[in-house]
Design a binder for these strands. Structure first.
Lengths: 355, 355
DNA sequence: CTGAAAGCGCTTACAG
DNA sequence: CTGAAAGCGCTTACAG
């Protein structure tokens, strides 16, 4: 059926118009319903579109209309639970709005790397960009994005360091909840296997504040070198090696780290939760299927992603109409999920306070 | 510094040219190094680019050059381990090649849904598309993609149902390895908690063939309703409820399902691996940090993703030069990871064959 | 080494 | 209800 015998060329609006016997304007009208088209012509256009497998050319369309149908997402990681789930939320909301998601990983904080990521994404002319400001890399990217692009950050409650609209995750409250739970069980010293990124210290700060206000103590603090179980195990090994008094409660940077902590505790002959209580963070699906089932703080990352997209849409509209600043969306509040990894300390395991 | 007091407009090549006192062609030349530009002019252009925060307009550029700097990726899921990791591999390779990744989730096999996903991605005019053909949805999308776009599939060893270049994952051999391991330990009946998607039955087929060739038996087979631990637990509950003889070995559709199987076995008072050996599939990071550590089959999804991108690049080049078909890339061969969830059956747990 | 002209595929006024 | 013309931001010949 094709005129040429070679491989089919990507059809253009002119191909469709020719086949339907109408002008290209008419084809546009059938697509965007911007004006009435006679039923007969409309039928012919749809038929031609179908036969040719025409899907339009977003590049050409954006170029002239000034409307871009792509959202850029920049993150330092796409595999760790929080990142992956936030991305899924963004994609979900974007798809509903008929926008495609352009994703690019930022490899580091060095100016060259940051610039190259930004160039890769902005070079595609997205309608706006969402940055997962979960770590230093995210913050660096945020700072490098030019003011003329609508940008939304997803940040811990304190917000990003630059003046951009953001979706807040109230990790601080989550940290407090986790600490309160351990305190209520009777633990008096909470040890920390902290997250790898200083950027999300917010959750750890919540733990510290709650513990200190209760007059209890923060024990040893060891930072995991990354968001992984392996790093969690190493950190816990180190923590146990350096600890003089028995450890009865550990707060972990996230659930993946907690699983590594589990392994370290077992290797040291310690039982969970009889000897040591463990709390994670995020409510990764594995938390409910670990052994013992892990007590953790649920953060609804899917909702975070959806909110971020919603906020970005409003920013894009505001940019177009040159409106004033868009308000930040409401913060996502986490929830405590009590499972089997936490219990009261065994009598005598915590030495009585001297004096 | 800006002429207007309003919000800064996205700068164009004309803005850069004006500021640098050169023509737009010169700006292009500085960027793509297609021709020599005098050092002085080059300096001025770079300066203007820097000051304006110019990143080009991929849409306009693609439109005239015919080169597109985006790869589309379509998958039914972005969170399950295999999907997420393949995606990460694609993104990684794409980034090295200075291409952005356009991702869109396909929600279902219904023609309307498939068409809408395809339209969303093709509407952005990607240079090519990679489809994760890990399930029926992937297959449906693959079938709906028009012939004029370069497409690469990532498929189980048998390949996609349509005639497209693909990266093969040799799940069949992986299934055989898992079964061989259980057989070698002395198990004579292997039960299956099968994967949710008929599309990846390849791994199960490998198990079946290996077991049958060894003259051993496939026991009960229950399909998990999705790739999750919850579904794995339900399926195992069902399997145990229906089983008349003791279960000594279970092959699970993947590692997430295996964790659910763990929980079901524990709830039934069965020990792993003393009473029941469990084998997973994929080598999800949790496998190494579950309790007991899960024996599984490692599939290098990262490499799969990288290969897929490499193959797509060759397809794109072939399309441009109207060359003949591009050969399929070599298959990814999985590896068995023996850990603590498998052991010989307890004496007497398997009734001697009658006769 | 440099730039004026043409044109990629589309949509937006504009004129009927 | 319909189409001819202009132009979005860029790059590709072409001419110097």
């Amino acid at each position: 059926m094709n005129e040429s015998s070679g491989r089919a060329r990507r059809p253009t609006i002119a191909d469709v118009a020719r086949r339907a016997g109408v002008s290209t304007v008419t084809v546009t009208r059938v697509f965007d319903r911007s004006a009435r088209v006679s039923p007969e012509r409309e039928r012919r256009v749809r038929e031609a579109v179908e036969e040719l497998g025409y899907f339009g050319n977003g590049a050409a369309s954006s170029l002239v209309s000034g409307r871009f149908s792509t959202v850029g997402v920049i993150a330092s990681d796409t595999l760790s639970f929080g990142y992956a789930k936030s991305l899924a939320g963004i994609e979900d909301a974007a798809r509903e709005a008929r926008m495609a998601v352009l994703i690019s990983v930022a490899e580091g904080v060095e100016p060259d790397l940051v610039r190259s990521t930004v160039a890769l994404v902005l070079g595609q002319s997205p309608a706006g960009v969402i940055v997962l400001d979960y770590d230093e890399i995210g913050s660096a990217v945020l700072a490098a994005l030019p003011a003329y692009v609508p940008v939304v950050a997803v940040s811990p409650a304190t917000g990003p360091r630059v003046d951009r609209p953001y979706v807040a995750i109230d990790e601080y409250t989550g940290g407090r909840m986790a600490a309160r739970h351990l305190l209520d069980l009777g633990h008096r010293t909470i040890h920390l296997v902290a997250p790898p990124n200083y950027g999300v210290e917010t959750r750890t700060r919540g733990v510290r504040d709650e513990v200190q206000e209760a007059g209890a103590e923060i024990g040893s603090v060891v930072r995991a070198r990354e968001w992984s179980s392996g790093a969690g195990r190493e950190a816990m090994d180190e923590l146990l090696a350096g600890s003089t008094s028995p450890v009865t409660a550990v707060f972990c940077g996230n659930d993946e780290i907690a699983l590594g902590v589990y392994q370290s505790l077992r290797a040291h002959g310690l039982r969970i939760p009889e000897d040591v209580s463990v709390v994670g963070f995020d409510d990764n699906p594995v938390a409910d299927f670990s052994y013992p089932r892990l007590t953790t703080v649920d953060q609804d990352f899917m909702l975070v992603g959806r909110h971020a997209f919603g906020l970005l849409e409003r920013c894009i509209a505001a940019f177009e109409e040159e409106e004033a600043e868009v308000p930040a969306a409401a913060a996502i509040v986490p929830e405590l999920r009590v499972r089997d990894s936490t219990a009261p300390p065994r009598p005598g395991s915590t030495p009585p306070r001297s004096g």
